[in-house]
Design a protein around this nucleic acid. Sequence first.
DNA 1: TCTCAAATTAGACAGATTCTAAGACTTCAT
DNA 2: ATGAAGTCTTAGAATCTGTCTAATTTGAGA
Lengths: 143, 143
Amino acid sequence: MDAETIQRSLEDGGLRCTPQRYAVMAFLMEHAEHPTAAEIFEAVNRLDPRSSRATIYNNLRDLVEAGLVREVAVEGRAARFDAKAVRHHHFICDRCGNVEDMEWYDVPKPDADSLGKRVFREYELIFRGLCARCAPRRASRHA
Amino acid sequence: MDAETIQRSLEDGGLRCTPQRYAVMAFLMEHAEHPTAAEIFEAVNRLDPRSSRATIYNNLRDLVEAGLVREVAVEGRAARFDAKAVRHHHFICDRCGNVEDMEWYDVPKPDADSLGKRVFREYELIFRGLCARCAPRRASRHA
DNA sequence: TCTCAAATTAGACAGATTCTAAGACTTCAT
DNA sequence: ATGAAGTCTTAGAATCTGTCTAATTTGAGA
């Protein structure tokens, strides 16, 4: 991933390109496996230890607000983050909580009637089940 | 909501009908506004204070496992719970985090190809935007 | 009634995230 | 350059959500 692209996308989002912010964005663009804040903190500081935990969280919040990063809440687990540019759905594993990307396809949006006074921004489709790693041992669930 | 219905649904789910469990289930069936665990704890004990916090969490976990209650994770906020029997989608407010029900409609499921070795269990559609209460003041965001 | 598993409890604990207060860095007008 | 103002970062404390522990109570069935 080319540095200028990252810098430009930050600036397009109205964010200054600081080394710490750059590191978070670059890491997310290079790692599609939906890391948690803790994983990002560890990985970013392993390369060059100069981001505090608060800064990771601050920058993730800024990136989400700027629309450059998506946050995925998972029941009972830490949030996961995702900078993939192309639109996609998500598959969440019931057992391990991992989040995987699924190919995008449009579905009908709710009509104005059912929205009422709400302002619609976007939708996403979440699939649940067992990921490829967990599926084979699902029998052990009933052990 | 009739007491026998609640009792029966608990027993159908393989759960003993204790006063504490009953109280959680009854509260959820009577309150469709997707309360958090903390809200349930407070409300249930306001009526009749005999449930500890751990019991609320234990019972919510049991009810979710029995399929009687749905848990909705919301980014950066406490999980919300929902005992509505009829299938529905959710609308989550970007600003206040409230969860509202949206009428159900089927959408195409992912095909076997894109699932690969994953085991599909269910899907849900999540709409995001601003709820009726937050929509009018969205301008203040840029203040 | 007796027994045993299931359920409950208070409070300690843990993990995730936010807050605070201080300092460092940028920007920009002088 | 210089200084003011705002933005960013920091370490650690604090908060919030949720889980665990160990002891006790409850309840269904023998």
